[in-house]
Design a binder for these strands. Structure first.
Lengths: 341, 341
DNA sequence: AACAATGATGTTAGCGGTAACATATCCGCA
DNA sequence: TGCGGATATGTTACCGCTAACATCATTGTT
């Protein structure tokens, strides 16, 4: 019997179970959801019947009737950047303790894709939305405002939230890094990052960074941008290129830890004194870094806390509780071994 | 106006749009789904009305009425191991070209959790299921058999599939690695891996590996297991431990590339000649490796191909097309710089 | 001019559950 | 013995949409 040809067997319904158990559909529904009073005897009968038939409830019908959906839409730009799977992991951990369930949508950093994904998700009437960033199309913002469910914008903090917001001020992160670098006496600073204009968080970090340098009368001396490919390799290559071109640089700021790690490996392999000759710093606190020969200076993006708190906000609101609508996390600079102090 | 107190405004329905546009609900439904004949004039009217009101269709009701759901359940053990986000990325890429949408569930390698997640997902009546591995609880297998939707089990190939299967024979991967190692003259072999008994793929690789060694009359001389923590760090630590304990080892086989990379970094930092004194090999082909000073010998897990093909199978079947129910991918050993040849 | 074929729209009856209300059934206690 | 109040179960009316069929113009054909 070829499974590809199996005639579409009718799915089991409450009615099937109710007939098998000899009770009404409503009673079956009650048993299966643990709602209302049902005698132990019928409960048992029903559970047996359901198991025997292999009944799987139809949440679609249930959701339509009850006007309740236990899904939480989580919208992230990418799965390739470990930051987002890590946020997801924390969200899952929290929601696992509740009846809620995350549903992930990926936007590839494209606003139109984000709008489409959001529309798709909202059309399933989720109990909440967790979405990365504060920059959305006007239509997307309108949808979220009208959706009448809790919305939590995460990661970033610089901008106007629609509803709740949990994150790190990216500008501030950039600024603090710049201040620390200046304080340690570095003056000839190079920057490396992606050339993704739509990665607003990276952009804001750079803005904060530049701004703080400016206040000290310093400006970035040289920079390199990349797109695609292995970040570690790119970091290595860009570092080589920038140091060849501007050998007098005494500090390299990377927009993320992965390219920073590549740069670090390059320096180590080429006997460049870090942090004596050049200092290095990245952003994120990826777990990977712990395994490197030297600890890269970085600043945690707090993604686990962010995921956890965002999920808690949704869960609390789903229970009608009130919560803080703005949670600012303030990661501390970790000097590691690549930034003098 | 506190958004937490907004009275639950009634959601817009087709009826609202139909009244706004002055046509029947059915016509609105037709326009919004691009089905059936509708005159350009009404089409325009309806679209304008929908946009003006900010109407978001209710897929729950739609799905219930049409008995069609454009969701594909994807069930993976973890988001922390980059392998799975990468598979997800490929799946998304393929499904983006179709009306289908992936929905992710995470099991944390726990069979009971997998069963629960599967139940939850099937209760939304998805158009297909993509699930990692071949080992499931009996109840989970029964659910999938009864679900009457295409099921694709991915990653692994050693076992009985429920329906379709796409993957790499993990036993064979382990065996081929062992054969290559033996062929290059290595004899005193150490192994490092997780002690997760439920990571069946790692287990099978080790089985294949051991078996091939046995055929050559060799057995693993020493081994180390870890759990939790940064894989890179663990790889470093385990390598140090195993080499101190068994200094005569001439080859180290790691159950994944991340710990392998840690081991490689340890060897490099300690001036251990690789692959002269000891050879190293891992498994997976994580992108990260490209950035290391030396290329670790490895074998690609083909996760991008796997994701792509699995998604294509679901998409094809959703269109009633028939497809291969068994796709075996045969990754080739990449010698890199850590395995003599 | 009569009529089939076609195109454009409307009407009706569910899809499979659940909320809300109605109806037994049983018990203790005055 | 009868009655109020739990406790246990059933009945009814939707939830918001779409399949299937019905209706009504419009057009070309002979």
């Amino acid at each position: 019997m070829d499974p590809q040809h199996t005639p579409p067997k009718r799915m089991l319904t409450l009615r099937d179970v109710s007939e098998e158990a000899g009770v009404s559909e409503m009673t079956v529904s009650r048993v299966l959801r643990n709602r209302g009073d049902v005698s132990d005897a019928t409960r048992l009968k029903v559970n047996e019947a359901a198991k025997k038939l292999g009944y799987v409830p139809n949440k679609i019908a249930g959701a339509l009737a009850s006007q309740r959906v236990n899904l939480v839409a989580v919208i992230i730009p990418s799965m390739s950047n470990m930051v987002f799977p890590e946020v997801m992991t924390s969200i899952s951990e929290v929601l696992d303790e509740t009846p809620l369930q995350p549903v992930i949508g990926v936007t590839n950093y494209q606003p139109e894709k984000e709008e489409a994904v959001l529309f798709e998700m909202l059309s399933w009437r989720p109990s909440g939305v967790i979405i990365a960033g504060l920059e959305h199309t006007e239509a997307a913002r309108a949808m979220m405002r009208n959706a009448d469910v809790p919305i939590v914008e995460i990661m970033d903090l610089d901008g106007d939230p629609i509803d709740a917001i949990v994150g790190v001020s990216q500008r501030r992160a950039g600024r603090e890094m710049a201040e620390a670098i200046i304080a340690q006496g570095y003056r000839k600073i190079g920057f490396m990052g992606t050339n993704m204009p739509l990665d607003h968080r990276a952009r804001k970090r750079l803005e904060g960074f530049t701004e703080a340098l400016q206040k000290a009368g310093i400006k970035i001396q040289d920079q390199e941008f990349y797109s695609g490919g292995s970040a570690l390799v790119k970091g290595r290559e860009m570092t080589e290129a920038i140091l060849k071109r501007s050998p007098d640089l005494d500090f390299l700021y990377y927009s993320n830890d992965m390219i920073g790690a590549g740069g670090l490996l390059y320096c180590l392999a080429n006997g460049i004194d870090v942090p004596g000759k050049v200092g290095l710093a990245g952003f994120n606190g990826v777990e990977l870094l712990d395994g490197l020969p030297k600890q890269l200076a970085t600043m945690d993006a707090e993604r686990h806390k962010i995921g956890r708190i965002a999920a808690e906000i949704i869960a609390a609101r789903a229970n009608g509780q009130e919560v803080d609508l703005r949670v600012e996390l303030k990661p501390r600079l970790q000097f590691g071994d690549t930034l003098k102090r």
